[in-house]
Design a protein around this nucleic acid. Sequence first.
DNA 1: TATTAAATTGTCAATATTGACAATTTATGG
DNA 2: CCATAAATTGTCAATATTGACAATTTAATA
Lengths: 191, 191
Amino acid sequence: MARPSVKEKRTEEILNAFEKCVARFGVEGSTLEKIAEEAGLRRSLLRHYIGNRDELIDALIARYIERSDADMQLLANSLKNASPQKIIDYLFYEEGDLTAQVSQALMVAAPEHENIRKQLTRWTNDFHDQLTNILKAIYPDATKDNLHIVSAGIEGIYLNAVSFNVLDDMENMKAASKAAALKLLQTLDKT
Amino acid sequence: MARPSVKEKRTEEILNAFEKCVARFGVEGSTLEKIAEEAGLRRSLLRHYIGNRDELIDALIARYIERSDADMQLLANSLKNASPQKIIDYLFYEEGDLTAQVSQALMVAAPEHENIRKQLTRWTNDFHDQLTNILKAIYPDATKDNLHIVSAGIEGIYLNAVSFNVLDDMENMKAASKAAALKLLQTLDKT
DNA sequence: TATTAAATTGTCAATATTGACAATTTATGG
DNA sequence: CCATAAATTGTCAATATTGACAATTTAATA
C-alpha cells in the first residue's frame, strides 16, 4: 500500500552513469554532481539509493567484478574446444569501449583503493586461469609452462588492445594486435 | 647582481612530485596541494614556477613525452642488431614502476585532454615504428605484415605487463608475459 | 478518499580546491 | 653595506565538492 519501489532501477542507472563518468574522467575525476547529471538525477538521490562517495565506489567495483566474472564464465563455456581462430575472434570482439576504459581507470585507482586492488588482482588471476584451461582443452599435449606463457601473452595483447580505444585512429594497431594473439596461440600447434 | 635562480631545479622537483601523485591518485586526483606537499613546497610556488593547473598538466605531459622519446632513441640505438633475447631483456628491464603507472594514468586522462591524447597517440605509433625497424634489422627476410604483427604483439604484452605493477603479487604473470614476448618474437625465426 | 511508504526536491553548512596577488625574505654583485 | 632580482611566504575571495537532513510530492491500496 505504498508507492512502488524503483530502487533497483535507480541503482542501475546511477552505476551506469558512474561508469560512463569513470571512463571519461577517471575515478577521482568523477564528482557526485557529474554522475548525477549523467544519470539525470539529483545528487541527493545518489546518496539516498546507494550512499556516500566511498559506498558508491564500492558498489561500482562490486558490480563491475560481478559482471566480469559472469562474462568470464560465458567465455569459458563458449570456448570449450573452440578453434584457435574462434577463441581470438571471441576475445577481440568489440564489447563496447566502456568496459575497457573503466577497467583501466580502476587500475589507476587501485593504488589508493585497497578494495579495488584486491578485486582486480583476483580477477586478473582468474582470467588467466580460465584462459589457460581453455587452451589446455585444445592443446592437451602442450606443457604447463607453455600454456601459461601463451595465456599470459594473449591476455596482455588483448587488454592492451582495448586500451587503444582512448587514442585516435588505432584501427591498424588493434588489427595487428589481434593477429599477434592468434600467431602466439598457434605456437602451441607444433608440439 | 641578484639572487641565483633555481627555476630549473624547482620545475623539475615540481614535475617529479606531480608524477608521483599521478601514479598514486591519477591526473584528476592530483590536487595542487598534494603535489606541493609531495614536493615540499608551498602551493604558490607551483603557480610561480609553472602556472595554473592546466599549465602544470601541459608541462607534465611535455616532459613525459620528451623523456619517452629519448628513451625510445636509446632503445633504438642499443638494440640495433641485438639478439632476440637481448631485445626482450632490454624491454622488460625494470625501469622503476613510476613510468608505467604514469603512462596508464595519462591514458585514463586522455579522453578529456586533447593534448595528452594526441601526444600519447603519436608516441604509441612512433614506438611501434621503432620496434618494427629494430625487428626488421634482425629478421630482414620477414614480411612487412609479420613484422608489424609481432611488433604490435610485443608492445602490447610489454605495456600490459608493466601495468601489473599496481596489482599485488604479479611476479609470475610478469615473468610469463616476458616469456610470451620472446616466444612471439621467435615466430619470426622460421621464414 | 485517506493512508502510507517511497520517491523526489530543496537547503544548509563544512570542507576542499583553485586563482590571484600582496608582502616579505634572501642571496648575489658592485 | 647597498641595490636588485629572485625566491619564498602569506592571505583572501571565488568556486567546487561533499555530507547531512528536512520538506514535499507521488503513487498504490484499503
